[in-house]
Amino acid sequence: MWRDLPGARDDALDVGFRIKERHAIEKLNLFVPARITFNDIEDLSGHLKNDRTLSAVFNETLEVDDFDDNVFAAVNTYNKKVAFHVISIVKTTDICFKYLDDGEGTIIQFRKSLFEKMKHVGDYYIRFRIVLAGPLKDLFVTSFSQEDKFFVSAFYTTDIIEFRLNERRSFPTSLLKSAGQMKWLDLSSVYFILIRDFKAELIRAHTDFHKMRRLENNLWSDYVSSLSKDPPAQMMLYHWRVKKTSERIDDFIALASFRTIKHSLLDYVLGIFLLGMAGNAAEAFLASLITMIADPQATDLKNVGPDWSHLIALFVCIFGATVIFFRSALKKFYWGTVNRDSH
Rank of each mutant, 00 (worst) to 15 (best):
L132R: 01
F144Q: 13
S153K: 09
L185V: 06
L187R: 06
D159Y: 04
I193A: 04
E147K: 13
K177S: 10
R164K: 14
M118A: 09
S189A: 15
L185H: 03
R127Y: 08
F128W: 07
T106L: 07
D186Y: 01
K112I: 04
R196M: 11
Q181V: 03
R196K: 13
H206G: 11
K119F: 06
L139P: 00
Y124K: 07
F171M: 12
I126D: 02
V121D: 15
I126K: 06
K119C: 04
R129S: 11
I161F: 09
D148A: 10
M118H: 06
S188V: 09
F150A: 15
K117H: 10
Y124V: 06
A154K: 15
M118P: 06
K183S: 06
A205T: 14
K117P: 06
P172A: 07
Q146V: 04
F150P: 00
L187S: 01
S143K: 09
L187K: 03
Y124A: 05
Y191M: 08
F198T: 13
K119L: 08
L132D: 04
P135V: 08
K119M: 10
K177D: 10
R129H: 01
I108L: 13
M118S: 08
F115I: 01
H206T: 11
G180S: 02
S174T: 15
I130P: 06
H120I: 00
S145K: 14
F110T: 00
P135T: 05
V190K: 04
R127W: 00
V121M: 10
E167L: 08
P172I: 07
E116M: 09
I126V: 14
L185R: 04
G122E: 08
R204H: 06
F198N: 11
T158N: 10
K117T: 04
F115Y: 00
P172M: 04
G105E: 03
R127I: 05
N166I: 00
F198E: 14
R196F: 01
S188E: 15
F192D: 11
Y191S: 09
H206L: 08
S170T: 12
G180K: 03
A205R: 14
A205V: 09
L136C: 04
R196P: 02
F171K: 01
Q181D: 13
K117V: 04
V190N: 05
K112N: 13
S113T: 15
F150D: 11
L187Q: 04
R168D: 10
A205G: 07
L176K: 15
A179M: 03
K149Y: 10
V121P: 05
I108D: 02
S170M: 02
Q146Y: 12
E147W: 08
Q181M: 07
D148L: 11
G134C: 04
T142E: 11
I193K: 11
Y191V: 08
E104R: 15
R169D: 13
K183T: 12
F128N: 05
R204A: 11
I130F: 07
L194R: 09
A179L: 07
P172T: 11
R127E: 14
T106K: 05
R169K: 15
S178R: 15
D159I: 05
M182K: 12
K177R: 14
